[in-house]
């Protein structure tokens, strides 16, 4: 009995130790996590942005110089479409042209997976996005004083037929120096929607604007963007520095004239005084000659 319990106890301790040790072993390994975002651009290309971080005592730390692979997957099949290397911010991106063929499910859903295989102590990780193809057309029209944006959107059915998009909000942006300014939303139903463009957006110095129509965080289609240029800005004349001011490089005219008059007045008297002194010197010579 005693032996049995001892054996039991010993085996229990060994088991516990093994568990602890294995935990410790696992703790030495570092978990990584990967974030993936996809965007369909105006030219129908897609850009996949990845951020790879690893867990450390200091929190999430970017993993640099790591190779991440991108696969298109559907119904158990998987094909490599490209790979990228992370930078010091842990970011990498892959751009795939519009000719890229994605594997699709029966419903027409494509899925792109990114994966970091892991190396040494760093455990690999994966992330994926799903999207369906959407045809997006943006046209701009000008009538009298009002400018309108027309949005047409349709998805492609299993047999290649066009299905008009139903009840979806598109966000409208104009490009700013650092970021895009949201100017409103365009509601698209039965494949069409319009948006009255506000007439008080300045744009650049020529009134040029870059307008973006974006479908964002859509369950079915992912992120899609279409950009158009328009000269719809009402840019007012810019910030004009006064030519002659206290803080410009050229001084105000009155200041220069005052200074010149003052200096001319004073220095002409000095010159007069010096001329008189020279005359005194000359007179001395005359006296000597006499």
């Amino acid at each position: 009995m005693i032996n049995k319990t001892r054996l039991f106890r010993q085996s229990l301790i060994v088991l516990l130790l093994t568990i602890v040790a294995s935990f410790q072993l696992m703790a030495q390994e570092t978990a990584s996590s990967i974030e993936l975002k996809a965007l369909k651009n105006s030219d129908d290309s897609r850009i996949f942005n990845v951020k790879l971080t690893g867990e450390s005592e200091a929190g999430a730390v970017p993993v640099f110089e790591a190779t991440v692979d991108f696969y298109t997957i559907a119904e158990g099949k998987s094909e490599l479409v490209g790979s990228a290397v992370t930078n010091k911010e842990g970011k990498a991106s892959l751009k795939l042209g519009k000719e890229t063929r994605y594997l699709k499910s029966k419903e027409g859903v494509a899925e792109v997976k990114t994966s970091f295989k892991g190396l040494g102590k760093l455990i690999g990780s994966e992330a994926s996005v799903k999207f369906k193809e959407l045809n997006l057309q943006v046209t701009l029209s000008e009538k009298d004083t009002s400018n309108t944006i027309h949005v047409k959107a349709s998805s492609i059915g299993p047999n290649g037929e066009m299905i008009p998009l139903k009840e979806t909000n598109f966000n409208l942006y104009v490009q700013g120096l650092f970021s895009k300014l949201k100017i409103g939303e365009c509601f698209v139903d039965a494949g069409e929607g319009t948006f009255e463009f506000p007439n008080n957006i300045p744009g650049d110095e020529n009134g040029n604007l870059k307008i973006f129509v974006r479908l964002e965080e859509n369950e079915d289609y992912g992120e899609i963007e279409k950009a158009e240029n328009a000269k719809w800005g009402n840019h007012r004349s810019g910030f004009a520095e006064p030519e002659r001011s206290l803080w410009s490089s050229g001084a105000p005219i009155w200041m220069i004239t005052t200074l010149i008059i003052l200096l001319a007045g004073v220095w002409s008297h000095y010159i007069y005084a010096i001329v008189q002194l020279i005359k005194i010197r000359k007179e001395d010579k005359k006296i000597e000659q006499k």
């Binding site: 570092t30 971080t53 690893g54 200091a58 730390v61 993993v63 640099f64 010091k88 102590k121």
Partner: peptide, 15 residues
Amino acid sequence: VTLLSPDGQLVKVPK
């Protein structure tokens, strides 16, 4: 900056 190398080493590299 402190970064993780792909094999899980914490390293300091110039920004």
